[in-house]
Amino acid sequence: MEFELRSLLVFRHLAGCGSFSETAKHWGISQPAVSLTISKLESAIGLVLFERSPTGAKLTADGHAFMPRADEVCQCYAGLIDGLRTWNRRETKEVLLACDGTSIGRTLIADLAAGRVPNLSTKVVTCDLQDRWGAALETNRFDLALSGRFLRAGLDSNIQEAVLLRERGITVAWNPTFHSFDTHQFSFPEILKSTVLLPSVKVVAGFYEFFLRWCHEAYGTQPAHTMAFDTEEAAASACKAGLGVMLAPGDLIPRLGDEARHYESVRTFEFLLPQAFTYGIYCRAEEASKDVLATAAAISSHLARRGLLAR
């Protein structure tokens, strides 16, 4: 009995999503290649693992029975790879930092590249924040995450958080050349007739989902159209060009810096959502590396000195 380890990874993903096309996209291969991989795995182990249909695939009884073994192997493999990655970073005194798409995160990346962050005893390597950054942090994909979260999104017992900033409510901003909302008698449902520009999970966890649920439960409707952006700069550029109305948690305008002059804005729901937006730096709950913890402290101090956390 011989099969490639990757076939187990493909099997596990297909079992989770039930979609050949989504699995193909995730692994960067064609849909026929996914089907062939599963067929070869089934032939090797002598079991039919999936019931195929035009709408996708679901596990057979044998597939359910096989899943725990496959999952165990995949987890061991992932643990080995992640462990080697972590060991290599420790040996080279590197700390891998995932930064979000806020202006704070973008500024920190620039400061690190220019050597403007003092008191660092390690080499900090930056990368973009992933959609499921909590899981990626837990499995050692990176050592630290700098991110915003809305309400309780992103919180996990396996992750510890150092809060850098908390803010109230939501900011609504627009270019007055293209929109004429009244800042003194602002009506939130009015913006739902426009395209709404929202931060993705790579900017702030939980906000996009909260906004859509809020619209449904509070107003019984959804916005005419939404666009998600992976950086606040990209959302601000789209808003400046008149493509829609920008929403963001907390006090967005100071984060826009000089660009703020192009927009009118209102702060709303401050009473209903006190301290709903939290900005922090995250690491694993059981993190024992002095290099990682010292790097987190140095970054926090630098952001405070730069005035990026003062509101």
Rank of each mutant, 00 (worst) to 15 (best):
Q185W: 09
A288P: 03
G101W: 00
F271T: 15
D131C: 02
L212G: 00
E167P: 06
G16Y: 04
G83L: 06
G79F: 12
L247F: 10
G148L: 06
P54I: 12
Q222K: 12
I191D: 00
G101N: 03
D82G: 13
C17L: 05
T221R: 07
G169D: 05
A310R: 12
T171N: 07
Q31C: 07
R166M: 09
Q160Y: 08
L47Y: 06
C127V: 13
A236D: 05
A98C: 08
K240W: 11
D156A: 07
Q31I: 12
G242A: 11
S180K: 15
G56Y: 07
D131T: 14
C127M: 12
L129P: 06
E233R: 14
V124C: 01
T139F: 05
S289M: 03
M246E: 03
V117A: 03
V196G: 06
Y77S: 04
S200C: 01
R6H: 13
A236K: 10
C283L: 08
V201A: 09
A70T: 12
W174L: 08
E94N: 11
A294H: 00
V196A: 06
S180Q: 15
A241L: 13
K193A: 13
I109F: 01
T278I: 04
T295P: 01
D62M: 12
A24P: 11
V73R: 07
E190Q: 08
D182H: 15
S103E: 11
H302R: 05
L197A: 06
T183L: 12
Q222H: 09
L273C: 07
D128A: 07
E94T: 13
F181A: 07
Q130N: 02
A145E: 04
P249D: 05
S35H: 15
I45V: 15
G148Q: 07
